[in-house]
């Protein structure tokens, strides 16, 4: 049988679940953003642009 009545306990648990949800979404966004920055600001060898020691230098 489902619990029909809302209790303060449910509010607290819901708050905790939403909080954790936001943290996880934030973490995914952070890793995504970091990936974009790293990919667009580094050459194929992982060096920042203009600092590679390749044959062309």
């Amino acid at each position: 049988m489902a619990i029909a009545r809302e209790h303060e306990l449910h509010h607290r648990r819901r708050g905790r679940n939403f909080g954790l949800g936001f943290v996880l979404i934030g973490f995914v966004a952070l890793v995504f953003g970091l990936t974009i920055v790293k990919v667009s600001h580094q050459d194929a060898h992982g060096n920042p642009p203009g600092t590679s020691q390749g044959a062309g230098n």
Binding site: E8, L9, R12, G15
Partner: peptide
Amino acid sequence: DHGHEAGF
């Protein structure tokens, strides 16, 4: 015991 249920 509701006091033992942690919030975020």
